[in-house]
């Protein structure tokens, strides 16, 4: 993405990736707000991060956080299906698309 592109263009482009549709007005206001925030975030460049690893939370020693391969209780599929916006039988339905 062209970072020097006008903020509203950047907003539209990002919105496309995030499956949001912005009106031109929204793109203008969000775009300029993003511009301000991004300008602020550039202070991160000050830090000397050479050789510094990305952060990771400490976990319990020796704990591999793995789960036994044993089926759990019933998943309440009917209740889950009942919450779906559109279904056909026990399948979820969306407007037709091509794989």
């Amino acid at each position: 993405m062209n970072r020097s592109a006008p903020p509203e263009e950047m907003a539209h482009e990002l919105a496309g990736l995030a499956r949001l549709r912005l009106s031109d007005d929204e793109a203008r206001s969000i775009g300029s707000q993003l511009d301000t925030v991004l300008a602020y975030l550039r202070c991160l460049a000050e830090a000397d991060v050479d050789g510094v690893p990305e952060f990771e939370h400490e976990s319990d020693e020796g704990d591999q956080a793995l789960r036994a391969d044993t089926p759990g209780p019933d998943g309440r599929v009917e209740a889950i299906l009942a919450g779906a916006p559109k279904t056909r039988g026990s399948l979820v339905a969306v407007p037709k698309f091509k794989d």
């Binding site: 993405m1 970072r3 950047m10 907003a11 990002l14 919105a15 990736l17 995030a18 949001l20 912005l22 929204e26 969000i30 707000q33 993003l34 925030v37 991004l38 975030l41 991160l44 460049a45 830090a47 991060v49 510094v52 690893p53 990305e54 952060f55």
Partner: peptide, 27 residues
């Protein structure tokens, strides 16, 4: 929406190192 868009920006492959990766190192 603002935050989704900002988050989408910082994770893009071309901004990852300067933003997300760097922020995690600052962390």
């Amino acid at each position: 929406k603002r935050r989704i868009l900002l988050g989408t920006f910082v994770l893009r492959s071309e901004s990852y190192a300067d933003y997300y990766g760097r922020a995690m190192k600052v962390r």
